[in-house]
Design a binder for these strands. Structure first.
Lengths: 259, 259
DNA sequence: CGAGCGGTTGAGGGAACTCAAGCAGGGTGG
DNA sequence: CCACCCTGCTTGAGTTCCCTCAACCGCTCG
């Protein structure tokens, strides 16, 4: 599945892991940091022209956006596609700490720090807008209102991480998967009308979901199976149809989903 | 134990959960956001005078800094003491998502968002500097260099949260506790010379440690016992002496600490 | 065709949870 | 003063959830 397919597909428009850039029109119209990449006079230009102005990077599935040890020099705004970001431990084992879709901002966590500790990798063909840190700081000096946006985005990423902490801390595996399906994965999940989305196209393999949720891939598979047996979802590979989002949501309540 | 005792105590100066504000002198000399609370002309004033200028809040143990549902209006910089911040789920159960000590900045995660979802509570007598959001934004406009500091702090909190994600995701309970003892809890843990600290005074009960690390208080207790039986630490209530930090650190390596 | 990858399913064991009892320390009141 | 309670912590016994190990399936690709 590539980004173009997603744009055309009538299903699955809403899950954060696969949401499309702008729906209709260029992703700049929904950019969370408008005016950062260059002056805003060019807004309204044809998409093809915009492409030529932007500092865009295109990644194939499996390509890395940045790697551990690499000197950090940019932040990125995702236009289309999906990425995962990972941390590495001392033994080199990877831990998925985030999935990111169009509109998400990457790299804020290491701004002002010399090099990356983890890495980010495209899960499918992906394009991002690169914003050099120098330009970011310049812009912030001359256009202080951008400030609030960046701070808002950083704050929402912190809040998001706390939510994940809660999920890993007090939900059991089946509940974590239900949460994952409903709440999605990006810092901008608020923009996702979850109840309306009934079909999800997951861009990541089971192993990545397992890592992200702190469980094994077998348990992810079994949990999918359990949810399916109960009629809550219908699973076929990476296509998941939410048959009963309301009852699925009940599952997320900690301790005893008494129903 | 109160903040003053800690300042005097010859032991346990370094653990993030109990580190002292400035060591010697007023906490402003080590403030991560100097010049934010007011103009910087007063730096160098006697401590007593500084106190009168600052918008300081003093909290008794158990007092809340902010509560769920409360309209957000400030960020805070901790001067002395210790706090925990918690998230609440739909059933009102609390999940500890952070412990904070002197120098830590609270409230960035909800900036620009109307109300708090969780709460923060003092674990011991605590004083904080309150910075109204309005003043923060004003300062940032007139003094754009502050910018980098705020962004750096927010970034380090994101990075910190990712580290916690990794710990909850791939370490078992005994390893999580070892990590907690060594790496501490605050976003400024880098300032802590962990290897030098041999005695830790924990300001929080077992239940809070358990919640933070995603385990039960019984398991926390048993894990302390296990570490003690192996001669790695010596535990007496909330006083923990690190007998062998090096071997303790080996424990944190995921999967098999083959030793 | 076989190899490789991603995913599913099963059997068994172990880590951590639940439930429960017991203990130490601190405060209060008779 | 001691009895009493209450809170925080420890320890034990039994159970459950989830991990580990393994086999198997379907698909793609060489």
């Amino acid at each position: 599945m590539n980004a173009l397919d997603q744009l055309r597909a009538p299903v699955a428009p809403a899950h954060p892991a696969v949401r499309t850039g702008a729906g209709n029109g260029h992703c700049c119209s929904t950019c969370p940091l408008p005016g950062l990449c260059d002056d805003s006079s060019r807004r309204g230009l044809p998409d093809a022209l915009l492409e030529s102005v932007l500092e865009q990077q295109h990644l194939q599935a499996g390509a890395t956006l940045y790697m551990a040890g690499q000197r950090r020099s940019s932040i990125w705004v995702i236009s289309t596609g999906a990425l995962k970001s990972c941390e590495l431990d001392l033994e080199g084992r990877e831990q998925v700490v985030g999935f990111h879709g169009p509109g998400d901002v990457l790299g804020l966590e290491r701004i002002e720090i010399s090099e990356h500790r983890g890495f980010a990798l495209a899960l499918e063909p992906t394009s991002v807008c690169r914003i050099p840190v120098g330009k970011l700081l310049d812009r912030l000096t001359t256009a202080p209102e951008l400030w609030r946006e960046v701070l808002r985005i950083a704050g929402s990423q912190i809040a998001r991480a706390r939510e994940v902490h809660r999920v890993l801390g007090q939900l059991q595996t089946g509940q974590r998967l239900a949460w994952f399906l409903l709440e999605g994965t990006g810092p901008r999940r608020d923009a996702c009308q979850c109840s309306g989305a009934t079909v999800i196209q997951l861009p990541m393999p089971r192993q990545d979901i397992a890592s992200y949720l702190g469980m094994t891939l077998e348990t992810v598979s079994r949990s999918f199976g359990a949810l399916q047996r109960e009629g809550l979802v219908s699973v076929q590979g990476r296509t998941v149809r939410l048959l009963d989002p309301a009852r699925l949501a009940e599952r997320i309540v900690p301790q005893a989903a008494h129903a």
